[in-house]
Each structure stands twice: as C-alpha cells, then as structure tokens.
C-alpha cells in the first residue's frame, strides 16, 4: 500500500522562560493510504502537537514529514497553505466556524477558495448540499452557527473538511466536546468517509473512538511508546482488546 504520510525523527521543542521543553522526541511512523489512525496518550504527552506538526499547521524543530511524497517542512507558507486547502481536511475538538457565515457558507468556503477543485461554483454548491444530506444536516444549511447543536456543528465541520476531497483528514479530538450519541454519529460519518478511501488521523482520549480505527499509536512524553493494530471485526472484542493494550501501556 502507498504511504501517504511518512514521519522521520520529528522533534518539537518549545523554549519557555529560557527552559527547553522537548514535546516531541524523534518521532517516526508512517500512515498508509486508506488507514484510520488514532493517536492516544495521557494529557501533555504531545498528541495534538504531533498532529499539528504532521499536518503542517505548526513548524517542526527537526525531522522530516513527507506528505504524499513531499517533504512539507521544506514547503513555503503559501505552498503549505495550498496543500492544507486542497489535500488535507481538519476537524477540531471545538466546532470552530466563522461566526458571520451560515453553516452552509462555512462548509462551502474552502471549496470556493480552492483553485485546484475542478468543480464549477454550481457543482460545488450541489456537492455541498449532497454532503449535508449525507450527514443529515441539510435542514440547518441556512442557520447561523449559534442556532445549531454541537453534534450538528461537528458534522458540519466534517463536511467542511471533506468538501475539497482531501487525501487525509486530521482530527483533534473530534468527539471531545460531544455527548455519547453525537459522538457516535460523528464517528459513524468518519468511518464511512474512511471507507470511501480517505485517510484519517485523529487524536482522542476515548478508547471507544480509538477502537473504531484501524491502528492506534500510543504516545508518552513525546515518544511513540507502542502501536496497536485493530484486527478484530467484532466491535466489542475490539474495544476490549484495545482497552487491555492501553492498560499495558499505562493508560
């Protein structure tokens, strides 16, 4: 299988009050096309920092991240922005959206901004409606972002992240701010999208969410301590097996 993401000796160091804080220490791993990878670990272990560095949202201190064969650490800011716009999708824990735009306009915005997206404005609009239909949020299309529930808003964020048909979706605790039923709905959608061929890399604290991924990376103190492959088909067994592994890791 083609490797969509290769991370080699990734380091990230913050300097605070003249003291060095090595958040990521020589992290190396790779993600294949079509995989759904979860990153887990205790608070402050560097999960989100890893996600932001791998996705080019933050600049690494050392190392190499190859995205679809290109070393993103070498890309200039504009080129990196284009990669994020056209080839990556982002979902955040808080359902960040632009408050002056309606839900639909927020979803449509990256599509309209993309120059690589071959669709016409009308086709983009139709595609946006199609996605909103699929995620069952079409009825809130014209609503203000303050008028909808958290679950609906996170599904809208998922729509926004896939509107340009990205190669990879990066999600930072996508269910962290949702209740259980909303969380399940969001994960159902992410799994469906992954099933359609989009690679997903997400950070989570929730073993139930991680259990739905094909692979789990466990990170402690800026290093990958272990890697778990979900091979079970039965979801209950899968969760149990993952929980046992997490206990072994010190979860």
């Amino acid at each position: 299988m083609k490797k969509i993401l290769e991370v080699n000796d990734l380091c990230k160091t913050y300097v605070l009050n003249k003291r060095q804080n090595n958040v990521l220490r020589n992290v190396s791993f790779s993600v294949n096309e079509g995989e759904m990878v979860a990153i887990m670990g205790p608070s402050g272990s560097g999960k989100s920092t890893l996600l932001y560095n791998v996705s080019g949202m933050d600049s690494m201190t050392a190392g190499e991240v190859r995205f679809d064969g290109r070393d993103i650490s070498k890309l200039k800011p504009n080129a990196l922005a284009e990669v994020r716009l056209d080839e990556m999708g982002f979902i955040f824990q808080q359902m960040y959206m632009l408050k002056n735009l309606s839900v639909m306009d927020n979803i449509l915005l990256p599509a309209r901004q993309s120059k690589k997206n071959p669709m016409t404005s009308k086709e983009k609009f139709e595609y946006c409606r199609e996605l909103m239909h699929k995620l069952d949020i079409i009825e809130i299309a014209d609503n203000d972002i303050n008028e909808v529930s958290g679950g609906q808003l996170q599904r809208a964020c998922i729509c926004r992240s896939i509107i340009n048909k990205p190669k990879v979706i990066f999600a930072d605790e996508p269910t962290g701010a949702l209740n259980r039923s909303s969380s399940d709905e969001v994960m159902d959608e992410l799994c469906r999208i992954n099933g359609e061929g989009t690679t997903i890399m997400l950070v989570t604290h929730d073993a139930k969410v991680a259990a739905r991924c094909t692979r789990v990376l466990y990170i402690v103190d800026g290093n990958i301590k272990g890697e778990y492959n979900n091979t079970e088909n039965d979801m209950r067994k899968r969760e149990r097996s993952l929980n046992n592994w997490l206990l072994e890791m010190g979860w």
Partner: peptide, 29 residues
C-alpha cells in the same frame, strides 16, 4: 450571547454569490 438570538446576522449567501470568497466575506462582515 445568551443563545436566544435567532435573527440571522447576514443576508448574503456565499452559495448564491458570484464573487470570490474573500470579497464575499468582506462584504458579509
């Protein structure tokens, strides 16, 4: 915000706009 605001902020829609998103956002803001 007390969550009781149901009035739409903007009257424009990006989906119906023929301008680029940047110009649209500027006008909409």
């Amino acid at each position: 915000e007390n969550g009781k605001r149901y009035k739409k902020k903007g009257i424009l829609s990006l989906s119906k706009s023929h301008t680029g998103p940047v110009f649209f956002m500027a006008v909409n803001d």
